[in-house]
Amino acid sequence: MSIQHFRVALIPFFAAFCLPVFAHPETLVKVKDAEDQLGARVGYIELDLNSGKILESFRPEERFPMMSTFKVLLCGAVLSRVDAGQEQLGRRIHYSQNDLVKYSPVTEKHLTDGMTVRELCSAAITMSDNTAANLLLTTIGGPKELTAFLHNMGDHVTRLDRWEPELNEAIPNDERDTTMPAAMATTLRKLLTGELLTLASRQQLIDWMEADKVAGPLLRSALPAGWFIADKSGASERGSRGIIAALGPDGKPSRIVVIYTTGSQATMDERNRQIAEIGASLIKHW
């Protein structure tokens, strides 16, 4: 058993032996400061991975655009179909130039040979490839079927209504393609630790998130040596930015963190910096 498999397999085991986890309101002070700095709403939640207890939250039940963070949920739905014998990670999917949409750094290189379902999930999560996400959405029946999958998990909040890139429109008060921090954190925890997916599929999902290559300026920039993080970021119109993550010290995840912001006029660099500073406060007061 690899170190990674050891880590995921023991998450339920550690729940019975973990020390009490204490919240630190200092992080919420930073979240509120980020709102002031960005001139935008910020949603935040910090969840204990083992118990599911909410440690801190700010606007946990307000809607925010999901942006590309939905791609983790999408690959969770794909893995659920794999577990049920309805899909194979090794199945190759062929597509054409007409299928390519904006920001497809991986799929645009494989027009001649296509990509496997496994490769598409990797591209969608680690590189946020939009065509990969659309191709995967097609395999499960489209955005409405992803919403149905989430409903069956008990998440009646999170919804996907459109495809890439239209889902990134982020119109104020538009509930399409949105979630709430509390709903996203709970759903992510179920995917990573619950019985919905097999152990192998849970491991695969967290491996893809751990290999994320496009979230460096966010929480990863504040991470001390030896800490673990598996994450997925997102960005969209109207100053929207977000990240969902499982992270913790000693090389294993122990908390879920979800951060969303929307409605800012700030630059992408400034949005990144504010999220990184929230992460730094979280780690300092861990």
Rank of each mutant, 00 (worst) to 15 (best):
I206V: 15
R63S: 05
L73R: 02
E87W: 02
L137W: 00
V42M: 03
C18W: 12
R41T: 08
S2I: 15
D212V: 04
I275L: 08
L223N: 02
M1R: 00
P65V: 04
E237L: 09
S254Q: 12
R81V: 05
E145M: 13
E166S: 09
H94K: 13
F58S: 08
D99Y: 09
R255L: 03
P65L: 05
V8D: 12
T187I: 05
C75G: 08
L160N: 03
A200V: 11
G239L: 04
W208C: 03
S236D: 07
P181R: 02
D269C: 10
P224H: 04
A40H: 04
E164V: 04
L196I: 13
T193I: 13
F22A: 12
G141E: 04
P143Q: 03
V31G: 00
K190T: 13
L19S: 15
T158G: 04
R63T: 05
L150V: 09
R81W: 05
C75I: 10
K213D: 10
N173T: 11
F13T: 13
L79I: 03
K144V: 12
T179L: 01
R63G: 02
S240G: 14
I283Q: 05
M180K: 13
R81K: 15
K144S: 13
R189Q: 12
L73K: 02
A9E: 08
T126N: 06
I206F: 15
K109T: 14
L247Q: 01
P65Y: 02
A211E: 13
P165T: 07
E87I: 08
F70V: 09
A245E: 03
H285E: 07
A222D: 07
I229A: 03
D161A: 03
R273S: 09
D207V: 10
D83E: 08
I283L: 08
N152F: 11
S128R: 03
A235T: 09
R238L: 11
R273I: 09
T126Q: 11
I275F: 10
F17G: 11
E175A: 11
M153Q: 08
I11V: 15
D113P: 07
L19N: 15
I244K: 01
H285S: 07
A215C: 04
P65D: 02
D250R: 10
P20Y: 05
P253I: 07
A246F: 09
F70G: 03
G90K: 10
L89H: 04
Q265A: 14
L136A: 03
E108V: 11
L188Q: 01
R202I: 05
P249L: 03
T139R: 09
V8R: 14
M268K: 05
G216T: 09
A123T: 02
L47T: 07
A77R: 08
D129N: 00
T186V: 15
L10Y: 11
A182N: 10
I278K: 02
R159A: 03
R159C: 01
D99M: 11
D155N: 03
S240V: 04
L38Y: 08
L219F: 08
A84L: 12
A124V: 04
W163H: 07
H110R: 09
P65E: 04
D177V: 01
S236M: 03
E87C: 05
V214E: 04
I275T: 01
P65G: 05
R255D: 00
A183D: 05
Y103L: 04
D129R: 01
E169K: 05
F70S: 06
A124I: 00
L197S: 02
Q88M: 13
P60C: 08
M180D: 07
M184F: 07
L247T: 03
T27P: 15
N168M: 03
L135V: 12
I171G: 14
D113C: 10
C18I: 11
H24S: 12
V8I: 15
N152A: 14
R7H: 12
K232A: 02
K109V: 11
L219V: 07
K144L: 10
